[in-house]
Design a protein around this nucleic acid. Structure first.
Length: 407
DNA sequence: ATTCAACCTAGACG
DNA sequence: ACGTCTAGGTTGA
């Protein structure tokens, strides 16, 4: 008998999602770096299921994306209930392509913009900044709540919290390969009297209150409920920012994230602690306004407007790109390894692979290949992960090799 | 006007 | 096993 647990046949994995539409959009690598874009900390709902294959939720659809051969290949899944909405194949293809076109903001030609940045900012010329990081046009409510969760927190945990939030309050979409997907909850679904208490039970901590307050504000205080966000889009950046800051827990940084990522303000540059360090390190921004150690209003303004002017008009995009390759981008270098690990574990349980190649970047920014193998021990059937370089292994394993898995 | 502890928790580290 | 620290911040004193 094999040591591997026999896999249930696909049918018993209760896949009740069907393919709604699939296709591909031609886009070159310079225009889209899919991984950095969906996993870089803008959205917290994408998972790398297999190498270079990402699954997430957009609206009522489960979406699978791959970028290869200058094509963004996509598959939209839905359950049979939604499926009736559009019966015409062509309508579906148009609908889904449009969703992605809007989400990735494909009318913006990143390639040309990047060349502009190279001319004005030498850091872009030096090849340290990845090309193809796009700003996603997200849904405002999801975007806001995600970033309310982000304070004193790390990407891994934020993702977990958002997942739990969707499972608790969102509408179920269906199951695919043993994973069940949920929509992001609507304002009404979140408007429950015990929201804060429940979120605290779910380990949201003090953020539970912020979320409750935000829901109440948008629904009952702001004029027009969800139309609030539409109205913000028509306001100037400054006015919209002030309106957002009326909500408990929304300070400048979170307001800026929402402005950039879901309200179409492409020039807004949010400054977090990492961006702050980044500014000090590479741009020497330690003058009168910014020399303070803590990130106060004054130096936030100073740094933000500096970058805004330097990189305009798509300065928010430049920030996302400039920041995405920083070692700071992961709190813990192991985060990204772990995410690849869990993706690997899923592969195993689906009987796809037991061994997989990754490219890892060490502390010298050198790329090397590593092989990750999963075996099961005989007694407990525990999974054992082994990692080894595919090149000649050094006699003594190097300490401090940061296993940042980026591919 | 500025600074500073407190806030929740998971996971890494010693 | 067990305490300490920190992580994409904000608030209120």
């Amino acid at each position: 008998m094999s040591l591997l647990t026999p896999l249930a046949p696909t049918s018993t994995l209760s896949n009740n999602l069907i393919i709604y539409s699939s296709g591909s959009i031609p886009i070159i690598a310079k225009e889209l770096n899919l991984k950095q874009t969906v996993l870089g900390g803008q959205s917290f709902r994408w998972i790398e299921h297999n190498l270079n294959e990402f699954v997430g939720v957009l609206g009522q659809y489960v979406v699978r994306l791959q970028h290869q051969n200058d094509n963004l290949r996509y598959t939209f899944f839905t359950n049979s209930e939604y499926e009736k909405t559009f019966s015409n194949d062509n309508d579906r293809r148009v609908e889904t392509a449009l969703i992605l076109h809007n989400y990735f903001q494909l009318t913006i030609k990143l390639c040309e913009t990047f060349e502009k940045w190279c001319k004005i900012d030498s850091r872009f010329r030096k090849g340290q900044i990845p090309i193809g990081v796009r700003i996603l046009a997200q849904q405002p409510l999801e975007n806001l709540i995600s970033f309310l969760c982000s304070s004193n927190n790390n990407i891994q945990r934020i993702s977990k919290m958002i997942k739990i939030l969707c499972e608790e309050y969102g509408r179920k979409i269906g199951t695919l390969n043993g994973m069940t997907y949920y929509q992001f909850p609507t304002l009404d679904e979140l408007d429950r009297s015990d929201l804060e208490i429940r979120l605290r039970e779910l380990n949201f901590g003090y953020r539970a209150r912020y979320i409750k307050e935000a829901v109440k504000y948008i629904k009952y205080t702001a004029d027009g409920g969800m139309l609030f966000f539409d109205r913000l889009k028509t306001l100037s950046t400054g006015e919209a920012r002030n309106q957002l800051a009326n909500m408990m827990g929304v300070s400048r940084k979170i307001a800026d994230c929402v402005l950039l990522m879901s309200l179409g303000k492409q020039d807004v540059v949010p400054i977090d602690t990492h961006m702050y360090t980044f500014a000090m390190t590479y741009y020497g921004l330690n003058n009168e306004n910014t020399k303070k150690q803590t990130l106060n209003t004054l130096n936030y303004n100073g740094i933000s407007s500096f970058f805004e002017q330097l990189w305009q008009p798509l300065s928010g995009w430049a920030q996302a790109a400039a920041f995405s390759n920083e070692p700071y981008s992961s709190t813990n270098p192991r985060d990204s390894l772990q995410s690849s690990m869990s993706s690997l574990k899923r592969s195993i349980s689906n009987d796809i692979l037991s061994e997989k190649l990754f490219k890892a970047i060490d502390e010298n920014n050198q790329c090397q290949s590593i092989k990750i193998t999963i075996t099961l021990d005989k007694l407990n059937q525990k999974k054992i992960l082994t990692i080894q370089p595919t090149k000649e292994p050094s006699k003594r394993p190097r300490r401090n090799v940061k296993p940042i898995v980026r591919f």
